[in-house]
């Protein structure tokens, strides 16, 4: 996981983020949602690319499909995030829009569960709390990320 361009940020312990749950954290001033899908962790920016809504506060849905008209099927329950403001759907695993995956996507971040002592600011945590730590990896500050996210920010 460790890339020289990425910086680790601990979010919580795995016990605090059971399957199907989410946690929204502010990491270096950026609001990020971390989701546990059946033991896998995914992190998305908590800002919808459409109208800057707090995307990660949206409802978790299944992927509704139809091979032909009126033939509904639902799969991947809980893996589709529906933005609370205008209903755009995003695949939590990829950050891509369900409707237009090639052109619309939410910013995603790498995650990992760190059992050993990670680099950087994780050092500030006591060792006993570092085990089973869910970590989100952000690009190092040379990036152009905004310092603060507020709902409605352009």
């Amino acid at each position: 996981m460790a890339s020289p361009a990425l910086e680790p940020f601990p979010v919580c312990r795995t016990a605090e983020l059971p399957p199907g749950s989410r946690r929204i954290a502010e990491l270096r001033g950026i609001s990020i949602g971390v989701f546990n899908l059946a033991g896998q962790y995914f992190a998305l920016r908590n800002r919808c690319p459409h109208r800057s809504a707090p995307l990660c506060e949206g409802r978790l849905m299944g992927l509704v499909k139809a091979d032909q008209a009126y033939a509904y099927t639902t799969e991947r329950e809980g893996e589709i995030l529906r933005c609370p403001w205008h209903g755009w759907e995003f695949d939590i695993r990829t950050g891509r829009s369900v409707a237009l995956p090639e052109t619309i996507r939410s910013k995603c971040y790498q995650t990992s569960v760190e059992r050993s002592e990670p680099e950087g600011r994780v050092d500030t945590y006591p060792v006993s709390q570092r085990e089973d730590m869910v970590v989100v990896w952000l690009p190092k500050p040379a990036s152009t990320e905004r310092a603060r996210d507020r709902p409605g920010d352009p």
Binding site: H50, M61, V64, K65, A66, D67, Q68, A69, Y70, A71, Y72, R82, H86, G87, W88, E89, S97, V98, A99, L100
Partner: peptide, 15 residues
């Protein structure tokens, strides 16, 4: 409307 409500008519595949 489609981007917002796609899941209600999932057989609509395109814009």
């Amino acid at each position: 409307a489609w981007k917002a409500l796609r899941s209600q008519t999932p057989w609509v595949k395109r814009l």
